[in-house]
Design a protein around this nucleic acid. Structure first.
Lengths: 148, 148
DNA sequence: TTAAACCTTAGACATAACTCTAAGGCAAGT
DNA sequence: ACTTGCCTTAGAGTTATGTCTAAGGTTTAA
């Protein structure tokens, strides 16, 4: 009917330590204790915890997640604030997606170079250019131990 | 012809502190010093630094970036190793993209709920369910101060 | 030649997010 | 009753990534 902290940890893929840490940080005010003082997680608690993970996985800071949870604890009256917070976070996540897509394209470009048949030649060319640039500026050559 | 650390910081969007930190971590072995002992960044150095930022922005740890840079310093002989490292990282980035896309869908779903005309009603329903679940398990109600 | 605005290093401090230890209580099986 | 395996807390320790301070050298321009 309810889950222990260990079961929850296994279910959501966090460590028991992390769950207790989140509780300390005020992220789990909805989890109450049984007679023994043990945390008793309900299904509803698990859903909220999954939301917390969703926000965490998209880079939201614990303080901001706490703000969201505080709104949830405040009940239906806070719907507008929740929407505002989530909209802002959505924008951040979309920006993050674009950043990653751009960087992935860059990685793919480099992988293309390294996978081409003449990769060694291209890389040697780059190296020669870098060395020439150092020389042109009367600088030491950091590629001394570089196997041509 | 060359750039000072301050100019580079402005160009790539890192702080001067961070650049020095990266150097300490062995990420910038290709940057050499001028007569005064100042770091002199060439255009080639900037390109390598941009690659470092690309890897950092996609979540690669500094230690792993250092490994990559070590390969670069080793010259064309390390092309195969660079490819392997970059391929692995590419996989990680793609997985990351999928994670984010999933979580974004979840956020959009919640935003849909909060944006619907009957949002307050739906949320009240959820709350009622959560409270009932606590009661069914003989647990205290953490939503006491919740404005219905 | 001196002031302003750079640069250097070593190392201390900060922050976030865990991660673990110590000491002890609770519950179930033998 | 005792062992095992949970659970609890407070608080110390860790890791990653910066961020800053102190003390001092360099460059440039008035």
């Amino acid at each position: 009917m309810t889950y222990t902290i260990k079961e929850v940890a296994a279910k959501v893929g966090l460590s028991v330590y992390t769950l207790r840490f989140y509780d300390k940080q005020g992220l789990l005010p909805f989890v109450v204790r049984d007679q023994a003082g043990y945390r008793a997680f309900t299904e509803g608690d698990l859903n909220l915890l999954r939301t917390i993970c969703c926000l965490k996985n998209t880079g939201m800071k614990i303080k901001a997640i706490r703000q969201y949870i505080d709104y949830v604890m405040a009940g239906p009256a806070s719907v507008a604030q929740r929407r505002t917070l989530l909209r802002q976070h959505r924008q951040a996540v979309v920006a993050q997606q674009q950043q990653i897509a751009q960087n992935l394209a860059e990685i793919d470009y480099k992988l293309g170079l390294y996978s081409a048949p003449n990769a060694a030649g291209v890389v040697a060319q780059e190296l020669a250019f870098a060395v020439a640039e150092k020389q042109a500026n009367h600088l030491a050559n950091p590629y001394q131990n570089t196997q041509a």
